[in-house]
Design a protein around this nucleic acid. Sequence first.
DNA 1: GCCTCCATGTAATGCGTTACATGATTCC
DNA 2: GGAATCATGTAACGCATTACATGGAGGC
Lengths: 240, 240
Amino acid sequence: MLRYALLELLRRKPLTGYDIRQRFQQSVMFCWHAHLAQIYPELRRLEREALLRSKCEIQTHRPNRTIYAITRRGREALAAWQKAALIRFEMKDDLLLRVYGIDAMAAADGEALLALAARAHAERLATYEAIKEQIEARYGVLRALPNDSLLGPLLCLEWGLRYERMYRDWCAWALQRLAERGGRGGPNGSQPTLDLYGLAAPERASRARRPLHERRQQHHDAKEPGISPAKRSRKTRERC
Amino acid sequence: MLRYALLELLRRKPLTGYDIRQRFQQSVMFCWHAHLAQIYPELRRLEREALLRSKCEIQTHRPNRTIYAITRRGREALAAWQKAALIRFEMKDDLLLRVYGIDAMAAADGEALLALAARAHAERLATYEAIKEQIEARYGVLRALPNDSLLGPLLCLEWGLRYERMYRDWCAWALQRLAERGGRGGPNGSQPTLDLYGLAAPERASRARRPLHERRQQHHDAKEPGISPAKRSRKTRERC
DNA sequence: GCCTCCATGTAATGCGTTACATGATTCC
DNA sequence: GGAATCATGTAACGCATTACATGGAGGC
């Protein structure tokens, strides 16, 4: 996947590995990121596959740089990937994971967590807004784009704006929810634990969950190996 | 990181690896995901580290199952991780990456891409709304929570709702943008390429970019090794 | 007869992060 | 004098995905 991010950047302009990292870190490309230790070998791999070509620039007062440019084959590979999209929902957000278990935290810790997130996302939002203003100052209203190569980045910028705004607002909302709950919560509350499995996506959970009447089961400590083999069914594999 | 998702699920209830995958796939836990081939070894690792403990359940008409339960040490590890949050902005969204290079696509392909995403996210949103309704039907208004262990999942559900709504709306907005542009675009348009590096986050790009006046440079094809060594500076390392 | 579910795993491969190393230059 | 910038890399490790394997139970 990283390869396509590299090809996309190089499609626009030849760059060095170092340049590419700058763009990942600081430019309008908020939709991807990578470390140098990943970028350099990937660039070399792409050159071996003839999707990129490199030039060496000799510099006198700085280390020499290797500038990569996209090839015809690279453009073709990029275009082919670009069309063949399929949408996946594989969220990974570690703040959300922490919030998922907020009932195990002291109220103050939970609030601190959300307040931190709120601040961080608000700052990010401000950054994006500043970028947008910069662009509008340079190129006027976004309707009249000077160049179609800016279209994609601007759409992505708008996504970033909406995302950060959404995140910030959600943090505020969640904090309010916590406040309304008052001091009821606390670490390791002793309420009975609900089985959240019931709260599943309907289309997948619709198949009625059978009461498992034939699941006659015995419990043993896995660490205790002294289970008589006669008790085990020979019909199923015994792995545990 | 996966370890904490596992610990969080097992904090609520002992489960097998298979159960855990169900929850990743279909339950309220939209904030993380993993494949079985990753889950099983991770569970065993956590048991070796004494954060989990396993029991074996013998079944007669089905394969036996290994049920994992969290230990005191596991709870401690989870709680320690939960508090020590730091916010990162490491976005990786391959649809967005494709959209970033939308100017290289035929207009119809770009529209198809966004329309696909719009539909997918609208469906997801509908799923989440159905889950919310299910919960409200069972437990009434969300203000009066029957159990604090539901609080985290509900906050996450709300995040998911807002995220999918945002994504769907952005797709619609972007499609409109494309429509307004009319037939102007096309594959490989020949406008001059802008250097997007200038559109950087202000706080990091504020340091004025110097005009590089002392960067006197020569170009050589990296594939041609016949560069006279005399031309190279001995002051810098020669790597390329 | 084929498909999906239950339940577990191995093996191979690929992707990603962290730490470490080099060394002149230039800014504060 | 110390930190950051430019520019490249290696090594070690950890995380993640894909394909493959097993084998009975039950549904269409």
